[in-house]
């Protein structure tokens, strides 16, 4: 049965994030009702997700390396690992390295229930591994090529692993060609436990774009960019369907790992569905 491999230190899995850092990511989220640039929101979501993954892998004696994690940013003319601080330049790192090497730890506030019907602001530590970047073009093909290269190597080195999950966040318009074939190729990479899973999160500026979460057909897609990303995404695994269903999304056996016109909370939910472990040991 595919997608059933135990995730353990001796058999870790992998998450690879591909983040559009082109100039258009400076625009605000479409339906968020705020002026926060997409690039800021995506950086927040990824930093928060990394924090959650580190905590998930934390034990009293330290961090267990259940995951290897990479983050590629693409913008301007090239694709580079998006880590800042001590991890700058590294494409895939074990989660223990991530735990030890945030670039900085910011103090942020969150609202918590005060127990009397109201909320109080509480100070929390917020580690930062990637910064908000928005610059130049959208070399999506280069990003997909790089992802193929990294995961071709990783799957060869980890043949029994739970397959890598790729989460790609973009506002959708590639400036270096059609990435379709490269996305298809990425999904052909595999371990003995199954093929690489590709999630596409499309932060569209198209005025006709409605919010679509995990659709099972392309009927309501507003343009060819959404079409490309929908078709490029993987069908959810049964476990991912279960998690999405628990979160209140309608799912079927054809549900794709695709989200359109997402606001920040939805980006976070999509990340969680893509990265929830089914059988961590």
């Amino acid at each position: 049965m595919p997608y059933a491999a135990e995730i353990s230190r001796s058999n870790p899995s992998c998450f690879l994030f591909l983040i559009d850092q082109s100039a258009s990511m400076e625009d605000p989220f479409g339906s968020d009702g705020t002026t926060k640039p997409k690039a800021d929101g995506v950086a927040d979501a990824i930093n928060r997700l990394l924090q959650d993954l580190v905590i998930k892998c934390a034990k009293s004696e330290g961090i267990r390396d259940y995951y290897h994690i990479g983050i590629l940013g693409y913008g301007g003319d090239d694709v580079t690992p998006a880590f800042v601080g001590d991890l700058t330049g590294q494409d895939i790192v074990p989660v223990s390295k991530i735990a030890e090497s945030p670039a900085r730890v910011e103090e942020r506030t969150k609202k918590v229930d005060d127990g009397a019907g109201g909320f109080v602001e509480q100070s929390i530590k917020f580690p930062i591994w990637i910064d908000s970047v928005a610059n130049g073009g959208t070399p999506m093909c280069q990003a997909m090529e790089q992802a193929n290269k990294i995961l071709d190597k990783w799957t060869a080195e980890h043949p029994k692993a739970f397959p890598p999950v790729v989460i790609h966040i973009t506002d959708g318009e590639s400036t270096d060609g059609d990435p379709k074939e490269l996305m298809e190729h990425l999904k052909t990479l595999k371990t003995k436990d199954g093929n690489v899973l590709l999630f596409n999160v499309h932060l569209s500026d198209n005025p006709n774009a409605t919010q679509l979460t995990f659709p099972d057909n392309p009927n309501d897609l507003p343009d060819q960019y959404s079409q490309l990303l929908y078709e490029g995404s993987s069908v959810l695994t049964p476990f991912q369907r279960k998690v999405a269903g628990e979160m209140g999304f309608e799912v079927s056996e054809k549900t794709h790992g695709f989200v359109l016109n997402a606001d920040l909370p939805l980006v976070i939910q999509a990340l969680e569905i893509g990265t929830r472990p089914s059988n961590l040991r």
């Binding site: 924090q51 580190v54 905590i55 934390a58 009293s60 961090i63 735990a99 030890e100 530590k125 580690p127």
Partner: peptide
Amino acid sequence: AWYAEQKAEF
């Protein structure tokens, strides 16, 4: 460590 503290709070 920051993660140990946050994890322990759970």
